[in-house]
């Protein structure tokens, strides 16, 4: 529901030895409304920095992020971010955690109903009054997702959200995420270093190179959802990406 554009994004930071490092260099891309984009790259290539910049949490050293043509000035409630580590507040129950964002924005309209609806959707009705330490990692991740969605964001940014999960839970949650995205029509940007996840999820995969973080290339994934690993094209794309990383980083 919103188009994201980046114009010559640069981000420079001081490292531990007080030497300034280019984390992002001349990042330019356009993400269409309602598109599912995967940002794929090695750990430390600046993809999380890029995602934080898209969320407005981090200001670029130079360049701009345009949301529907407008310059992004700071965090915006229409852009929701899901972190790698679960960020459920330990002193709030599942229900209260999901309502947290809406409550601080004073968005109280039908809040109880909306929260209940998302609890149903993530299948945690019996755990709605549980506290985060009583949940498994997969359940906690579902609550993170529900909290990010309950405010009805136009853009959902995900920073390796499924990395701490086991393979079964990850595949299940990936399918659920695709279903939610198709139902809602949000624009999704998903950061990962996992090639299979990238192919399962992305309509397009933006491949980032390392040191400094740059856009290497953009790969189209012309496969129907839900995507199966057994598909011939899946395998072909996987080989292509593996080869790309092998060549790009001399592995």
């Amino acid at each position: 529901m919103a188009k994201i554009q980046t114009l010559n994004l640069n981000y420079t930071a001081q490292n531990n030895n007080n030497v300034s490092e280019n984390i992002l260099e001349d990042v330019n891309f356009t993400i269409n409304k309602g598109e599912f984009i995967v940002l794929l790259g090695e750990s430390g290539c600046g993809k999380s920095t890029l995602l934080n910049t898209l969320s407005g949490l981090q200001k670029p050293t130079s360049g701009q992020v345009l949301i529907d043509g407008e310059n992004l000035k700071g965090p915006d409630s229409s852009i929701s971010l899901i972190f790698q580590k679960s960020t459920l507040l330990p002193w709030l129950s599942v229900k209260e955690n999901i309502a947290f964002g809406c409550k601080i924005r004073k968005d109280f309209e039908n809040l109880d109903d909306r929260v209940a609806q998302y609890i149903e959707m993530i299948g945690l009705h019996n755990h709605r009054n549980s506290y985060p330490h009583e949940l498994s990692v997969g359940m906690a991740k579902r609550v993170d997702i529900a909290r990010a969605l309950v405010g009805g964001p136009d853009i959902l940014l995900l920073d390796e959200p499924f990395a701490p999960l086991d393979l079964y839970t990850r595949r299940k949650l990936q399918d659920e995420l695709i279903y939610i995205w198709q139902e809602s029509g949000m624009t999704c940007v998903f950061v990962t270093h996992n090639i299979e996840s990238a192919i399962v999820l992305g309509q397009r995969i933006i491949i980032m190179s390392n040191n400094p973080g740059k856009i290497d290339s953009i790969l189209d994934v012309p496969l129907e959802y839900p995507r199966r690993h057994s598909h011939q094209l899946f395998d072909k794309l996987k080989r292509k990406l593996l080869k790309k990383f092998g060549m790009a980083f001399h592995l």
Binding site: L57, S80, L81, F100, R105
Partner: peptide, 15 residues
Amino acid sequence: VNKDFINMAINQGAT
């Protein structure tokens, strides 16, 4: 304080 909690709250629109 967990920095992710702070970022999460800012992202959700906290003052």
